[in-house]
């Protein structure tokens, strides 16, 4: 039970990071982006490439940072992957979503995002192969937190949680302390009023994709650290991160963070009562429960 709770918090840390970008895009561009989870895969795999590159160039970077299975090479790879993923998100918007936006209605964007998800996911599969990959071949030994009852935790998991919390704190400070943050929130609440107040809308949308992509990339790497990299990881992550945004309330960054942890914990706690085969359904059940009792989520506001 406590083990499940701990695992849930760790799952929640990468779900939250993924959900933040998704909720911003959904609120500002007003469409459910089903390709967002593919940004997590993209981030995870580009980190894999940069990791290999770094280790190849400077072999000393490939050493483990005991007790973590993490290497300096991977840590350095993360910011590169954030940039690559952020720019990819921006490019996908420029090349595809913006054109569809100009031609059709909001729902066409949802279709287009499904199409993009299929394309990105399977291109990753073609490039990296369909079999699972790991950042590190070494097995990270779990630390025993408590003997009675036996609770295990891997050092990598602690790193993931702490790093995710730091990123969220930075984002929180930006949103609550800087004019740039106010502008982002203003655009989320009322795009045309934001323009009236001097906010450059197209540029803000660019930043939203960059931030969403960068956070998704970190989430992808953390997912890879906690599990393994597979090209179809986006397919398995898309529903949980959507559930996180709905539980938190579409458009609310804090809601997305909380929603991510709720979904992560619920999915792991469900293992106590449900056979593990049913885990993929848990996010859906959460969505249904939220829609029944609080349709606009914990922090969401009704907006037409």
């Amino acid at each position: 039970m406590i083990q499940n709770l701990i695992d849930g918090v760790l799952t929640g840390s990468y779900l939250s990071l993924g959900a933040i970008g998704l909720t911003l895009v959904m609120h500002i561009l007003r469409f459910a982006n089903f390709s967002h989870a593919e940004l997590l895969s993209l981030g995870a795999y580009s980190a894999l490439v940069f990791d290999a590159l770094m280790s190849g160039l400077v072999p000393t970077l490939a050493e483990k940072l005991a007790p973590l299975s993490l290497t300096w090479a991977l840590i350095i790879a993360i910011p590169f992957s954030m940039i690559v993923t952020g720019i990819s998100a921006l490019l996908i918007d420029k090349l595809i979503f913006r054109r569809v936006r100009e031609k059709g209605q909001e729902l066409s964007m949802v279709f287009a995002s499904f199409g993009m998800a299929l394309i990105v996911r399977n291109i990753i599969g073609l490039i990296f192969g369909l079999s699972p990959q790991l950042y590190s071949k070494d097995i990270a030994f779990a630390m025993v937190l408590s003997l009675d009852p036996l609770i295990l935790i891997k050092p990598d998991q602690v790193f993931v949680l702490v790093a995710a919390l730091i990123l969220m704190l930075i984002l929180h400070l930006v949103l609550s302390r800087t004019t740039f943050g106010y502008a982002l929130r203003a655009v989320a609440e009322n795009p045309s009023l934001a323009q009236v107040n001097g906010v450059n809308l197209p540029r803000t949308i660019m930043y939203v994709w960059l931030i969403g992509g960068a956070l998704a990339s970190v989430a992808g790497v953390f997912y890879g650290l906690s599990h393994q990299l597979i090209p179809v990881m986006g397919r398995d992550l898309v529903l949980p991160i959507f559930a996180a945004t709905i539980v938190g309330g579409i458009g609310s960054v804090y809601g997305a963070v909380l929603g991510g942890f709720i979904v992560g914990i619920a999915a792991n706690l469900a293992l106590v009562v449900l056979p593990s085969g049913y885990t993929p359904s848990v996010p859906f059940l959460l969505i249904i429960i939220v829609l029944m009792i609080r349709p606009h989520g914990l922090f969401g506001e009704a907006r037409a």
Partner: peptide
Amino acid sequence: YVPQNNNIFRSLTIRQNLDLA
């Protein structure tokens, strides 16, 4: 320009609204 309705950002504080403007 002061729009007719929805002319403030409800989710921002008063100070943040002004800072933005």
